[in-house]
Simulated scan of single mutants.
Amino acid sequence: MKMIKVEDAVGCILSHDVTQIIPGEFKGRVFKKGHIIKAEDIQKFLEIGKEHIYVWEPKEGELHENDAAIRISNLVVGEGVAKSEEIKEGKVDFFADRDGILRIDKEKLFTINSIGEIIVSTLHNNTPIKKGEKIGATRVIPLIIDEKPILKAEELVKDKVIWVDEIKPKKCLLITTGNEVYKGRIKDAFLPVIKAKLGYYGSEVIRQVILPDEKERIIEEIQKGLEEKVDMIICTGGMSVDPDDVTPTAIKESGGELVTYGSPVLPGAMFLLAYHNGTPILGVPSCAMYSKRTVLDLVLPRVLADERLSFEDIAHYGHGGLCLDCDVCTFPHCSFGK
């Protein structure tokens, strides 16, 4: 790459984007890579402090920042992710191409960012995403980069690093327990909450059953739901360790595989997760009725994306599992669940 005075650059092809910054007013590109410099451009270059421009003379084993960024983006982007059509200053932005759960292979991401001179930046793994949201970007640091870091990345990273798993609509059976609700002493408050949270992801409660705190009847309704082949069963109420709260025992004795009873998430410590031949059964504690965000907000989208969660998956929520109950909730773009 050769540096020449702008006064001598008329007719030359600009090898890089040129950005102007006016603090508090403007930051943007004024000349694009590939622009053929004209006599009337010289004054503008001088006004933004550019007395010289660079003309790239390609050499074997070197890449322009934009070409390198394209190769990195092709390496890391998987299904459900769209790339920005225009590349600026060696940077490619990534956007969700569908509603779903953002997946990041954190080990491969670390591998790329450990190479040097190339970066990939993303949102957190397992963040619920809407189509069109920006989820990451890659950028090359030098204007002209040696090809070796790119080749090393391509050698070390064989699978995609960023993708979006689709959330699929599901039909849910809601089993609400509690003598106080069953006998009409208080009004059920779970149904509107569960309907709203499922509805946000295109899923629905197809039926609600309100039961007393009787283990055998809860087991019976769980079995009935499984026979109806519902996609998911959510049990609400009776999730504490009080002797008369029998919902956890009923879920355990219904024949499913218990993943966890208890989660390191607040609100949501008394959460239960089980699977019965692949059908998820969620035991949702009472905090879901009155707290804006709970463990349900962390687990539900992953379950709707057909991810089979393990005990380890739930245990990992301890780091970031404290909701601050902010006056203005920005979830999922906050620390909760990260």
Rank of each mutant, 00 (worst) to 15 (best):
V303N: 07
A137S: 15
G199P: 10
P280T: 04
K59F: 00
K134S: 09
N179W: 07
K33Q: 14
V205C: 06
K33H: 10
K187P: 03
Q43N: 09
V6K: 13
G49S: 10
H52T: 14
K229W: 05
E51R: 15
R98C: 01
G225N: 09
C326Y: 03
K27C: 03
E166Y: 02
P23A: 07
E62K: 15
F94D: 01
F95W: 06
G321L: 05
C12H: 08
I234N: 04
K33F: 12
K338G: 15
V241Q: 02
K152V: 15
K91R: 15
K252R: 13
K33V: 11
I314C: 12
A39Q: 09
S263M: 13
F311D: 15
G283H: 06
P169M: 08
T294E: 07
Y275G: 10
T176I: 15
E47Q: 11
I135K: 07
V295F: 08
S121T: 11
E312M: 05
K195M: 07
Y261M: 07
E47V: 00
G278T: 11
L173N: 13
G321P: 06
G199D: 12
V193N: 06
T247Q: 03
E117S: 14
A250V: 00
I210R: 01
C12D: 00
L173H: 15
I281A: 05
H64G: 14
K158C: 03
I141H: 07
L174I: 02
F331A: 03
L75K: 12
E216H: 10
I206K: 09
G321R: 00
A288Q: 02
Q223Y: 02
I144A: 09
R207G: 00
V259S: 06
H316N: 03
I104S: 07
K183V: 01
K292S: 11
S254L: 02
K38S: 06
R302K: 13
R308I: 12
V30C: 05
I219C: 09
S335F: 10
S254R: 10
V10I: 04
L324F: 15
L63V: 10
I42T: 00
L198A: 11
D97V: 03
G225F: 01
G28K: 14
L151M: 10
K160M: 07
I13N: 00
F271W: 06
I13C: 06
K292I: 13
E117H: 14
I70R: 15
V209Q: 13
E220W: 08
M232C: 12
H276G: 04
E89S: 14
A305V: 05
N125K: 08
G90P: 01
I72G: 09
